[in-house]
Design a binder for these strands. Sequence first.
DNA 1: TGTGGCTATCTTGCATACAAGACAGAAAGC
DNA 2: GCTTTCTGTCTTGTATGCAAGATAGCCACA
Lengths: 247, 247
Amino acid sequence: MQDSHTSETTQKTIEETIVSGILSARIRPGTRLSENQLATLFGVSRTRVREAMMRLETRGIVHVSPRRGWFVVEPSAEEAIAVYEARRVIEAGLLRSMRVLTGEGREALDAHLNEEKSAMAAGDRQRLTYLMGDFHIRIAELSGNAIIVDILRDLTARTILISMLYQSEFHAAQSHEGHCRIFQAMQAGDFGRAAELSVEHLDDVEMGLDLTARPDPLSELRSSLSLPPRTVSATVRPKNHKLQRSN
Amino acid sequence: MQDSHTSETTQKTIEETIVSGILSARIRPGTRLSENQLATLFGVSRTRVREAMMRLETRGIVHVSPRRGWFVVEPSAEEAIAVYEARRVIEAGLLRSMRVLTGEGREALDAHLNEEKSAMAAGDRQRLTYLMGDFHIRIAELSGNAIIVDILRDLTARTILISMLYQSEFHAAQSHEGHCRIFQAMQAGDFGRAAELSVEHLDDVEMGLDLTARPDPLSELRSSLSLPPRTVSATVRPKNHKLQRSN
DNA sequence: TGTGGCTATCTTGCATACAAGACAGAAAGC
DNA sequence: GCTTTCTGTCTTGTATGCAAGATAGCCACA
């Protein structure tokens, strides 16, 4: 989606900066996103920051606590399950709908898997997080369907936020192998098998989560008392250290 | 995701009013949505209208032509194909992921199919349009996955816009039968079959479109002169589809 | 008749002003 | 010491003002 309107450039940049920050695990769930700070950071007024926030909110990336602030979402356990379920449905459906793996497609995935391998060798965890999510986006790109790509990108972003909340350790090697298996099935032209493997792979990742480790240990009590949701960590927060999380 | 913040009520109403207007085919593709008019209509300032527009834009319902105005999207032929492809992928994946049809699920779908029948008898075309789209949303609701429901609702809205642009006549009876067949397969517990039928059904509907009847008869000239496009593109490759633009 | 250019008036783009809720921390009362 | 209340300052919510592009219509002129 190329836009020739320079006027929208900045706005898209705010959105994309945040999303790519999440995709590469540089922005943690619960991060406060102050309109003022973002405005000065991007050299625009709050108006445009708000517009970006609204968009991100409808994409499920960010939420607002009225008169308290914008925060990167902290998916609940239930939401986490829903995200994985949605990904299984869409990714399996996508693979099953594929008929051929083109030469460029093969090359793209092959190159990607090599990147994964080298990132593993280098122990570059942030890059690894990014690549592990990006694999699925690349598969979506093979379909050439921009709608599905956009959907899966946003779901992947949420997945990464979920990982940061609930994943105790990071089984990169296991994920990498899962990706390789999917790729092999695709190369063999067996997309039904690839779909099955994809479901298994997502199951594995989901299984590796500790969904009992809640982001907010008080959430049960809090909601039963119908108190406002908790304010969470502030990575960028110059003066007011009031709202900080303990980790 | 229900919100308890009354402050957002109005805003959501603007969004939902427009979406439900589309879902029931009361709002046509290309309709101009003036910020000022909507603002006075809803008794708010342009600010809030703009926010609603931004949200609708990220949902693919509306687009803005800079300094000219907001318009309900008029999907191009390529976008139309992409929407149907995405729906096939997601709906088939969804059905295939289902394991049981609960009693309430059966009742809900049965009730819905009866509504379709009575709307057909009454010849209520607008209501019929709404119901034909809503069937698929109801199936999504059976999954209990709010993410998938939201995605399919927006895709259904786009589908209806596509119908209004490209569908010469409305084969309600045919669609209704397709729905019944899907329902039967689900009742029989054969969700794989239901998925296949769903794909076929969407193929049928797509086949009934005349994608050569362009919404913008000048688009060829326009693009050959590389003037700004009338709708923003989603890059999609032409498939094995009938819509070959032969010249 | 047709063509170029001016202008009035639409439209959105964006910044800003002010209202008002939410909190933290100090002050006051017990 | 403990609670309560107040107050300053942070935050977002919303309206409004102005800038500037886009368009249509008019008019002059060839």
